[in-house]
Nucleic acid binder design. Structure first.
Lengths: 235, 235
DNA sequence: GAATGTGAACTCCTTCACAGCA
DNA sequence: TGCTGTGAAGGAGTTCACATTC
């Protein structure tokens, strides 16, 4: 899965993953009537250091005023433009189990510039069911959806065993960006972008951090390493 | 949210986030009757390069046989031990909206060594409702749950505006590991670990990658950078 | 004076190249 | 010979220090 390359036009991958957070923080500020903000303030809201924020923004060009700070409206527009959220992106969700239904109902997508325009499942007993305002479609509907609705992003909420099949269907239909929740490696052509959200892995990492004594691993060589004991946190 | 420190006992943070994937791949192999595996094969199954896999495993000690490969059973045990999944971790989910309910029903947690033993919500009209085999509890039940059920991990599926309040309640009750789906920065004591899953951010990144021309950012200086055009993919 | 923008140092991670062993 | 384990090299990302500009 590897946090593979992801760069475009000189914006580092790590920066790209933070831009949405800045954008959201700015929108939040704007909704509270704030019109100007310093890198210190915005960084605090986003949960990063101000030098990180400034370095990130520097990849988009210079949009602040020295001695003053950033104009909330202007910076918002710049970030939205950089991320390509000046338009609404139609999204299809494949797999209408518990997770798929929750995602279909998740209001967060709508407010962030994404519109779930279709939900699909390969199971004929589920096809035709109502999910919110949508009707579950069969997988055969994909090519047409891509063509007519301009779907460019597919969300995969299938079982692990069905993930590759669903991926192949998405790719065959012309979808080139996939967000998957299935904890398996997907094989895709190099032109297709995949991002994976792995819930169990996140819990595993937390469990690892909470382990009091995980430290001592029985090594065939009998070595025991002490190790730094920093513990993760998030601002 | 910064991929903040996370190391313990000399296992790099980046490695820790991959160990669960290896573990799952191994379990999958075992279920198919495979007893031995090479780093090439396991790496392919996990979607990483074999040198990466071997370097990662080297942090746990030497458990392979040169010229042969790894014993699936033995390596599985080592990984499970390193990650601390030799026990079942009780988990509480806070926030019983769509997402919270889906997570409560998500079978993935159970198969990975986690057990959702309680679901909570601050809304009195939801408290008492049935969610699967559980009854929604009020937030006041938290301290007791931590004490009696040994809950060490909390999952936050609240609205963004309710996230900090829920976090404070979890922390006050003694929970020191939080997985949050709310797209806001959380303030926690340094002893508390937080991991965030941000669905909208993942879509934003995909949208960014799919943008044909995002490149040209109107800069006040009029500079335009060409930029490398590598595109992310995941194996 | 105050806060941005950025080269340089530093730290962390990945990949390479190959030594070491069955 | 085949595959693991690892030092060294190479990249990427973060932090520092400070020049720059309003």
């Amino acid at each position: 899965m590897t946090m593979h390359p992801l760069e475009r036009r000189d914006i580092p991958a790590a920066t790209v993953t933070r831009l949405p957070i800045y954008l959201r923080s700015l929108q939040d500020l704007a909704s509270r009537g704030v019109t100007g903000v310093s890198s210190d303030e915005l960084a605090a809201a986003a949960g990063v250091r101000s030098t990180q924020l400034r370095k990130d923004l520097s990849h988009l060009g210079s949009h602040g005023v020295r001695g003053v700070g950033y104009d909330v409206g202007h910076l918002t527009a710049q970030l939205a433009h950089a991320l390509g959220v000046t338009r609404i992106w139609p999204v299809a969700i494949v797999g209408m189990g518990n997770l798929g239904r929750a995602l279909a109902a998740y209001s967060g997508f709508a407010t962030e510039g994404f519109d779930v325009v279709a939900v699909l499942d390969r199971d004929p007993t589920i096809v035709g069911e109502r999910v919110g305002e949508l009707t579950v479609l069969p997988m055969t509907a994909l090519p047409r959806l891509v063509e007519e609705r301009g779907i460019a992003i597919g969300v995969l909420a299938t079982s692990p065993s069905g993930a590759q099949e669903a991926t192949d269907a998405l790719v065959a239909a012309g979808v080139e960006a996939i967000l998957t929740f299935a904890p398996v490696a997907l094989t895709v052509p190099p032109t297709v972008s995949v991002r994976r959200v792995d819930l169990a892995t996140e819990l595993h990492v937390l469990a690892f951090l909470r382990q009091p004594d995980a430290g001592v691993i029985p090594s065939s060589r009998g070595t025991t390493r002490a190790g730094s004991t920093k513990v993760g946190r998030a601002g």
